[in-house]
Amino acid sequence: MTWVNNECHLLGRSDHIPEDGRDRLKASRFRRTLAWFIRRRPRGLVAASIQYGHAHTQMLQGYAGSYESGFPDEYAFEDWLYRIECLSDDEQALSSGEHVSGPAADTYRNRITAANREFAGRVLTKERHARDLLGNPLLQIHHGEGMTCVLNPATAACQLRGTMDDPQVTPDTDDCRPQCPNIARTDRDIAYVRQRAAELADIVADPLAPPIRHERERRELDRLKSIISNHERGATDT
């Protein structure tokens, strides 16, 4: 703590570690930090599962030996905070005219509007309440790379992480299936798709690319171009 605070002072930072009257720092007090990294860092759940040797739900419910450790509630609270932040960003983007395409576009817009009305400004007094609220269908919106999952566990085409009756069930956005009816694509998603399409176009245009790779990437490029075209056509129609 002394070292961190000295560094903050030297660098002119205000995010030092304050005295809280709870004696010295120890490993068990970093559970909230662990929960933050697991939820917000890319593939944090995968990294945590590897480190602790557990599957998704086993890791969350078995950390430190039992549910009484409090860690599942702390993770749920971090998940709640993250989803509310994303909800605020999504609602602001929609209000600014962001276009949304894909089979779940209407559901996405309805959920964002309803969830903002339901949860904006809500304050939780106890961490365990977050776990119950996470099961609300209005909060089942998960952003991936080039797509947004408006999760309906009953129709999801991917392998879900957790059981359908688990309030913390999440989709496997790394294994998103193109035919899934839960997919929506925002303008932000399409920006990523355009970037990926440009990378594939370079490969397809390379005369030295192996034929098998050339054909595979050409098919994927055609698929991405179709996604972009459908999104742009819908934006024009509206």
Results as ranks from 00 to 15, higher is better:
37 F>R: 15
152 N>M: 07
66 S>G: 03
174 D>S: 12
30 F>A: 10
161 R>L: 13
54 H>Q: 15
139 L>V: 01
217 E>C: 06
181 P>W: 04
190 I>S: 02
200 L>K: 08
177 R>A: 07
97 G>W: 05
191 A>H: 08
118 E>P: 01
154 A>W: 08
10 L>N: 11
14 S>Q: 12
173 T>E: 03
108 Y>C: 07
92 Q>K: 10
123 V>T: 06
103 P>K: 08
162 G>K: 04
214 H>A: 09
158 C>P: 05
132 D>H: 13
216 R>M: 05
7 E>Q: 13
30 F>D: 00
130 A>L: 12
29 R>H: 12
226 S>R: 10
110 N>K: 13
116 N>H: 14
1 M>Y: 09
45 L>G: 15
108 Y>P: 05
45 L>I: 04
136 N>C: 11
164 M>S: 10
22 R>K: 13
180 C>H: 06
195 Q>E: 15
37 F>C: 14
206 D>A: 05
49 S>I: 01
127 E>S: 12
20 D>A: 09
131 R>L: 10
113 T>C: 09
201 A>E: 14
66 S>M: 05
9 H>A: 15
15 D>L: 08
181 P>R: 04
134 L>A: 09
1 M>P: 10
223 R>N: 08
59 M>C: 05
106 D>T: 10
88 S>P: 01
208 L>F: 15
61 Q>N: 13
171 P>A: 04
57 T>A: 14
127 E>G: 02
11 L>Q: 14
80 W>E: 06
42 P>M: 03
39 R>G: 06
236 T>G: 00
226 S>V: 00
6 N>Q: 14
192 Y>R: 10
196 R>M: 04
